[in-house]
Design a protein around this nucleic acid. Structure first.
Lengths: 345, 345
DNA sequence: GGCGGTCTTGCAAACGTTCTCACATCGATA
DNA sequence: TATCGATGTGAGAACGTTTGCAAGACCGCC
């Protein structure tokens, strides 16, 4: 019933625990004859080393914690998959938790994972409060590396590692694409400006406009809530005043807001990619269901995952993987074109 | 640097380890005065119990392993999220691994998770081979519960628990929906018939037809490979012989095949929901991007997750959660209607 | 034949808990 | 005052590993 231990094996073979251990781990002196005897015997049994005991002794759990606000987001899954691929090759496994967007749950998991003594932590936090720092600090004091993804707390210790999207570049890329297609009157639906994500994307829009000697018209800037209803509402407002403040294209700065904006355009009897060009942000339509196909800027999830994975290994085993060159990484978005953008002129 | 231990605390307070342990765990006799003294001291420090040591002593890891072929499938994420929600309330955490559809990797993870002594295992296996059984048997011999999801191995011990979709009912529901809309000449694109998933859905199609006194025309049955290209190819074949073997509707028995079939129809210049009615299987278009919206039967992922979560707790702590009533569960699919089905007559 | 090296093996400590047991104290009861 | 149960505390074993150390066997060399 209960798994066999080294002790059981040793007793049956009339050997000491140490000797059997040495055979199993293949380190230390063992007479070839003895080694074979142990190996042969082991083949007939079902011994599996107890990793928990090993962890206790070695003071490392070979486990990496991942805390996320919502596991259902495709975005995170791709990242996790890559992280798993990279770190599992080095023997690490992933302990994953979904906080369901709750700060309280996030803290609870931060606690639980520390109890479990994860060797490192990857987190997409929703809690930028200084109040959280004690929870995070425990890890840092303990020398346990943390990598933030998706966003990162203001606190700017050099112990804070992150891999996030270059929001400026992403929105710049989106707007520039519209401009390259001949659009000049470009609206933007941004997210909350007090969140870095919202603010930076908005800045990216301005940067691209100015780089092309276009002046962002304040009336063409709408502030949403990152959700579909916000995107819908913003688009409505823009459309209602379109005769006064005309525009031929719009950049929507999040996936869900893009969904809402598309619906608003359709309901106004206008056609996307014909009357109005739309470029979204991080729209996932991998099944290719949308018509017209939605042009969007996307983050390279695989790259993020691989970067995080590698950085983890480098932080955990610098002697083996080398010290990480850069621990604050902003990855570049890429353009996924689609027929939601029509050429102008 | 290194986390404090009970020993450290005990020494500083001039108490024994046992006493401090009793305070921390709130069990056993401790004088109120002592208790306060310990608590006060603890508040100034950063002691976090070492769960690894606890696990070793208690012979349980408070950890549940989850092995999946591809973490990116939305389907799995919803299930995981629910499982996490349910079992985390009881103190369990999830150890998740992505086998990337590789049998070899699956076995490796089966091994690794056993080393880590997970208290239970949830697996969507791609390996029905008897050759796998030794890996699975280790768990069973050890009394570690396993719950299969998505599919389950032929081996029919009563130790084999599962929560899967009722494929018969699902395809029956799909076909019946077409019939209810007036369609009588109904084609089906099935998956591999040597896989239970493919076979059962196909049977469901036949059952619904016969229940309505319709005779499935063998020429209207196409066998795909569960992938988009298979769906495309099958749809092509059906369309090419449509004058000889006419049909007004088709049921496609998997998500990716549905995508392929839709493309084929479009490329033939036909309109879905007008020339041909389509009902898919497990098509995820939660963003609502498709036009027309795709009617589909779907599995209730949340229900699956909750069932699995509850069953886990019941298997792990029957004294607390009661013994599970049923350990072989087939959940019912539900209909998600869409404009890809037009009414006939 | 003694010496120094390489092998071979086992003992025992350590990792940080939990928990049984033994012992001590104390107030209440007979 | 002796006895008892309840209360309070600590010593130490146990969980299953890894590993430093010691002791002995074996070998070749001077």
């Amino acid at each position: 019933m209960k798994p066999e231990t080294l002790k059981d094996i040793a007793k049956e073979l009339n050997l000491s625990i140490s000797t059997v251990s040495r055979v199993v781990n293949g380190k230390g002196y063992v007479k070839e004859e003895t080694r074979q005897r142990v190996l042969d015997f082991l083949a007939t049994r079902n011994y599996v080393p107890n990793e928990i005991a090993r962890s206790l002794k070695a003071q490392e759990s070979m486990t990496i914690g991942i805390i996320l606000p919502d596991l259902r987001e495709v975005y995170f899954n791709r990242i996790i998959k890559e992280i798993d691929r990279v770190v599992s090759a080095a023997g690490y496994m992933l302990l994953i938790a979904d906080t369901n967007e709750s700060k309280k749950t996030e803290r609870r998991y931060l606690d639980l994972m520390f109890q479990k003594r994860v060797d490192a932590l990857v987190i997409s936090t929703i809690d930028m409060d200084p109040a959280e720092t004690p929870y995070v600090e425990r890890y840092l004091n303990n020398g346990t590396p943390i990598i933030f993804i998706d966003n990162h707390p203001k606190l700017d210790s050099d112990q804070v590692n992150f891999v996030v999207l270059d929001n400026h570049q992403a929105s710049r890329l989106a707007v520039q694409t519209l401009i390259d297609n001949g659009h000049r009157d470009i609206a933007v639906i941004a997210g909350y400006l007090d969140e870095p994500t919202g603010y930076e994307r908005m800045e990216g829009y301005c940067q691209a406009m100015e780089a092309n000697d276009l002046h962002p018209d304040p009336a063409l800037i709408a502030i949403g809530n990152f959700k579909a209803d916000g995107g819908y509402r913003c688009m409505e407002e823009l459309l209602l005043q379109r005769d006064v403040h005309p525009f031929t294209a719009v950049h929507v700065a999040s996936e869900m807001m893009t969904i809402g904006a598309l619906r608003a355009i359709r309901e106004h009897g206008l056609t996307v990619g014909q009357d109005i060009a739309v470029i979204g942000f991080d729209v996932h339509d991998d099944l290719g269901l949308a018509t017209p196909t939605i042009a969007t800027v996307r983050q390279p999830e695989e790259e993020v995952g691989q970067r995080v994975g590698l950085m983890l290994l480098q932080l955990l085993r610098p002697e083996k993987y080398g010290a990480p060159e850069e621990t604050k990484v902003r990855v570049k978005a890429y353009l996924q074109s689609g027929s939601s953008i029509h050429k102008l002129q």
